[in-house]
């Protein structure tokens, strides 16, 4: 698609090529960046949910009073979760992509949608990392919080939901943000299964004109803008989670004022 009446010339300078790619190929770059962002956002969110579920499940206490079946089931499931975490942390994502994408194709004779495959791979890979991070977050919470929750009679799930996870998630926000940034960059790996994210798109553009340096200068700027923006947004979210740094004192117990507060 030629948007400007620019026809590539052999004698063009480096900067002329960069200008050409920027002005003429921006829709492709934009689509590629969009796919990258889509995969990394979805992958991080789904991975986070997986991480939460796995970590919380692995924290379910087994009581002496529980039945044998329940105990056995919980233990078996915890074992499976451990296997999941070890396998996905212990192998490169690029290899996981190949195995999952070509594996489903050859075993089930079914070709996954490439975008879906990309999101799927990033999600379960992120899930394995974030499970460990969430676990660390839960374990970093002062045991007094658990004890206070127990003494007012909160159940395990209520305690997790209202007390422990909000604090743990706040504490691990920097680590989640880090994982998100890594995902933006590592999504480039998915080019091996031809997902048309930013890296794959750049490679095709570059290949067409045989101009790699010129193309990838633009690509690197886009990656940087993406990660930089995401980092700033996450910082702002962390601030927001902390709530106001000061509180207002109530002069009298005006019920209306109190309502407004929650």
């Amino acid at each position: 698609m030629i948007l400007l009446d620019m026809v590539p010339q052999a004698e063009w300078t480096f900067w002329k090529w960069v200008e050409f790619f920027a002005l003429d190929k921006w829709p492709e770059f934009l689509t590629g960046a969009g796919v990258t962002l889509l995969i990394s956002i979805t992958g991080t969110i789904v991975g986070f949910i997986i991480g939460l579920l796995v970590a919380v499940f692995c924290k379910i206490p087994v009581k002496a009073t529980d039945s044998f079946v329940k105990t056995a089931f919980i233990k078996f499931f915890k074992f499976l979760m451990q296997v999941y975490i070890e396998v996905f942390r212990g192998t490169p994502m690029i290899v996981q992509a190949m195995v999952i994408y070509y594996g489903t194709a050859s075993i089930f004779h079914y070709s996954m949608n490439r975008l879906f495959a990309g999101i799927f791979i990033v999600s379960i890979n992120t899930g394995a990392y974030l499970s460990e991070i969430v676990r660390g977050g839960i374990e970093s919470i002062d045991k007094g919080q658990f004890e206070a929750a127990h003494t007012i009679g909160l159940r395990h799930g209520q305690m997790m939901r209202h007390i422990v996870l909000p604090q743990a998630i706040r504490n691990i926000m920097p680590a989640i943000g880090n994982e998100f940034v890594i995902n933006i960059k590592d999504t480039s790996i998915l080019s091996v299964i031809s997902v048309t994210e930013l890296f794959f798109t750049s490679k095709s553009i570059a290949g067409t004109y045989y101009k790699y340096f010129e193309t990838f200068i633009i690509t690197s700027i886009i990656y940087f803008v993406l990660t930089f923006t995401v980092t700033r947004i996450l910082r702002a979210i962390e601030k927001k989670m902390d709530g106001p740094s000061s509180y207002t004192m109530l002069e009298n117990q005006d019920a209306a004022v109190i309502k407004e507060l929650d």
Binding site: D142, G144, I163, Q167, D262
Partner: peptide, 10 residues
């Protein structure tokens, strides 16, 4: 004390 750190006094 062990107040819940993520919650307000109320």
């Amino acid at each position: 004390f062990n107040l819940f750190n993520n919650l307000t006094v109320l």
